[in-house]
């Protein structure tokens, strides 16, 4: 059942990102592990693409340990906004550490710097995991402004964006405003398969 769910998610994400510049994924917290597994499997099975994964949710070390296959994946670079703030100082060549999730300009700078080093012909993708957590560390207005900047800057550079929003009972009103800036919204439901 789990594999079916992950395969279903992978297919939905792949199809959506092919035709849309930016997609927002709204998902219940319970489905978060399945979704990121689907994302990482999608990334690792397309080594010709370049991905930047901004994590505000889990330290990149934890993600790599959780998904062992990521240790050999070369087409993903992490921008970890949480480790340093949590006092985790372990270095990782595949990861750029931002001191704090409040340093939004620095996050934006690091994203663009990674993509600048990628060949123009290579397809580029950005994942923001997650808008929900950015709002925990920042005021919603500044996250909105940040997200506008990111969406506009990535569009001009032909970078596809996937942003995650985790909903509990109901999606926060700020998150609703943010997530609908994307070209396409995917809603993940336990029962959608």
């Amino acid at each position: 059942m789990v594999n079916v769910l992950i395969d279903g998610l992978k297919e939905r994400i792949s199809n959506a990102i092919k035709i849309n510049q930016s997609i927002g994924i709204i998902l219940p917290a319970a489905n978060y592990p399945d979704l990121i597994q689907a994302l990482f499997e999608r990334i690792s099975s397309n080594p010709e693409e370049a991905w930047v994964y901004v994590t505000v949710t889990k330290p990149c070390e934890n993600i790599i340990n959780q998904f062992d296959f990521l240790k050999d994946v070369k087409n993903i670079k992490f921008v970890d906004c949480i480790s340093r703030a949590a006092g985790i100082n372990k270095a990782n060549d595949n990861c750029i550490f931002v001191e704090s999730p409040t340093m939004l300009e620095k996050i934006g700078l690091e994203i663009i710097n990674v993509f600048k080093e990628v060949d123009e012909k290579v397809k580029k993708y950005l994942v923001i995991d997650s808008l929900t957590n950015l709002i925990i560390y920042n005021d919603p207005d500044i996250v909105t402004e940040f997200f506008y900047h990111i969406i506009n800057r990535t569009r001009t550079r032909n970078i596809h964006t996937i942003s995650l929003a985790i909903e509990e009972e109901e999606l926060d009103k700020y998150l609703t405003r943010l997530i609908y800036l994307n070209d396409k919204i995917l809603k993940v439901r336990d029962s959608f398969i």
């Binding site: 300009e105 700078l109 710097n113 207005d141 402004e145 940040f146």
Partner: peptide, 15 residues
């Protein structure tokens, strides 16, 4: 250390 000084637009929203 990698890029030295870099500038990027400052987010203006009030805290």
């Amino acid at each position: 250390t990698k890029n030295g000084v870099e500038l990027t637009p400052l987010l203006k929203s009030r805290e």
